[in-house]
Amino acid sequence: MNWTLANYDRLFTALAEHVGLVATALAISLAIALPLGVVSARRPWAYAGVMAVTGVLYTIPALALFALLIPFMGLGTAPAVTALVLYSLLILVRNVATGLREIPHEILEAADGMGYGAWRRLVRIELPLALPVIVAGIRITVVTQISVATVAAYISAGGLGDIIFQGITQDFGEKVVAGAVVTAALAVVADESLRVLERRLRAAQSERA
C-alpha cells in the first residue's frame, strides 16, 4: 500500500484525466447520436443502415481500432476521443430510436391536436418521454467508454491506464493493481449511479401517468 498512499495525488490526477476523456467523448457522442436517433426512429431503412455500420464499429476491439487510427491521427487525445465516440454510437442511436418509437400514438396525436409543431413536439413531449431509455443507453456507453479509455493510455491519451502501463513497464505490481482497482471502481460507481438515475426517471414517469 506504500506506493498508493504516497502517490494518491497521481492517482487522483489520472482519475480526473480519465473522467475528462469520457465526458468529452460522451458530449460529442450525444451530439451525433441524438439527431441520428431522431432521424432513424421512423425510417426503418435509415435505422438498418446506421445499425449495420455502427454494429461493425462496435465489434472492432479497442486496441485494433487505435492501431488503425494511428496512421491517420497519430497519438494522443484526438484519436482516443474519436475511438470512444465511434464505440458509443450503436447503443446510443439504438436507444434514442427505441425510446422514441415506444411512445404511444395517442400521445403524439393529442400533441398534434393541441397544435404542437414537429419541433416543439419532439423537444417538449417525445424526448422527455424517451429519457429513461436514453439514460439506459448512456449507462452502457459510459461503462464501455471507461473501459476503452483505459486502453487509450497506450496511445498517450493519459488517464488511469497510464498508471497501469507504467506499472507494467517498471515491473511494479502495486502500481498496476492500484490503477486497475481505481479503474474498476470508477466503472462500477458510474454504472450504479446511472442505474439509480434510470430507475428514478422511470418511477417519476409512471407516477405521472
Binding site: 461503462v143 473501459s147 505490481g173 493493481v177 482497482v181 474498476a184
Partner: peptide, 17 residues
Amino acid sequence: NVLRTIPSLALLVVMLP
C-alpha cells in the same frame, strides 16, 4: 453484474502480482 462492469484491461492486469 459487478464483474461484467470491470474494464477488460483492469481485469487482465489485476492478477499480475
